[in-house]
Design a protein around this nucleic acid. Sequence first.
DNA 1: TCTGGGGTCCTAGGACCC
DNA 2: TCTGGGGTCCTAGGACCC
Length: 428
Amino acid sequence: MTISSIEAIALIDANNFYASCEQSINPHLRNRPVVILSNNDACIIARSPEARALKIKMGTPYFKEKERLSKLDVAVLSSNYSLYADMSKRLMNLLKNYCEEMEIYSIDEAFVSIYRPNDKNLYPWARKLRTLTYQNLGITITIGIGENKVRAKVANKLAKNIDYSAGIFDLARTKDENSYFKGISVDKIWGIGKQTSKWLKSKGIKNAQELRDMKENEIIKKLGVVGKRLQLELKGYKCLPIKKSNKSKREIQVSRSFGTPITKLEDLTQVLAIYAIQASAKMRSQSLKTSAISVFVRTSKYSNQKYQRVAHKKLINATDNTNAILKIVVALSKEIYNPEYKLSKAGVLMQDLINCHYLQKSIINYKSQEDIKKSENLMRTIDLLNKKYNNNAITWAITKKPKEWTINRNLLSHTSTTDIRKIPTIVI
DNA sequence: TCTGGGGTCCTAGGACCC
DNA sequence: TCTGGGGTCCTAGGACCC
C-alpha cells in the first residue's frame, strides 16, 4: 500500500468488553444474555448485546434487578479483572502492529494514528483489523476515524449508532457532517460531563453542531482552555496529542467500598493497611516510589449523615517499602477516624510518584547501602513469591485478623487465562 | 439490608519572595 | 514616615473519563 502524508486518528474500542471477555473464554455464555457486576457485586457495569436487548440498564444496583435477571435467565458474573487485563494486553499487542502510534486510553480503548492511502480510503484497513481481532480474540471492535481525537471519538459513537456502518465510521469522508452532528446530544461528547452539559443546555446549546459553532469567548469564560480545545477539535484542528503510553503513572490508588460499614478504628486501620500493601506492590511492579501518601474515608453517598476526611503526609525520601508505608498509613488512619459515623468507603493514594531510575540518593536520613539493599531484597522476594503462589501467599499479620467488612465477590467466573489451575477441562 | 474503582488535568487561592 | 504588586510554587477540590 502506498501512503500519503495525511495522517488520521482512529479511536478503536472493544464492544461490551468485560462481557465479551467472559463469552470469549466460556462457550456456554455465547449468545446468552450476560451481565458483569462491579466490586462488591454492587452495580451492573457491563452487558452483552443480548442483555442490552432485554433493556437491562448500565449502572443499576444489582439488588434492584436480581429477581428480574434470574427470571430472564441472565448469566450474572462478578468482575474478573485479571482476565480482562490479560485480554486487554493481547488486544493492544495486536492493534499496535497496524498503526503508526498508539495511545492506550483505557482497558478497552486505544487512540491510534495512521496515514491515509492515496485513495484516502481507510475502510479496507479498518475492516481487516475488525476481522483479525474477532478471529484472534473473539472480540468485536468499533473503529471511529477522524482528523483528531475528539472527532475520532465522535466517529466511534456514530459507528455504534448507525446500523449500516458495520462498526466503522470515517468522519473525514462524510459529505454532510452537520446532519450527523445535529444528532449528537452535547452530553454524549467526550469531555462534556454532567455539569457542563447542564450549563450548555441552559444556553440553548443542545447538540455537537451547536457546540462547534458556539461563540468562542463564551466557552473560554466558562470552561477555560479545556473547553476551547474541545471546540477547536470539533472544528477539525488538532490540539490533543497522541500520548505514548509508556509514560509512568502520576498516582496510584487503592480504594473500595465495604460490604458492611466500618465503625471501629482497628477495622479502619486494617482496611487501610491492606490497601497500602496492595498499593506498595503495585508501585514496585511499575518501578515507582511515592513521595506523598494520602488516606481518606467517607460515609455512603446515599446516607444522610455525611462525613469525609483526608490526611496527607509528605515524605523526605521517596519509598516503595511496604513496612515504611504501613507505618505512615497506620498513623494517618487515626487522623481520619471518627467513631460517630458509619464509614462505607476508604482508600490510600500514593502520590508524587517518582521513577526509581531517576531517583537521587538523599544525603539527609542516610541509611547504609547495606540496609537499603536488604529491604529492597526482602520486598522483591515477597513480590516474587506472591506472583508464583498467587496473591497473598506472604503478607503482613495485620491482614489476618478476622474481617467484618469484607468485599463481596460471589459470582466470579472460574475460567481464566491467567491462572493455570483454572484452565477449562474438557471431558471426552 | 444491598448504590464501583482508579485515574488525569485544570483552576483558584494562599504563601512566599523580591 | 512611606507598607505595592507581580511572579511562582503548592494544595485542595472540581470536573471529567472509562
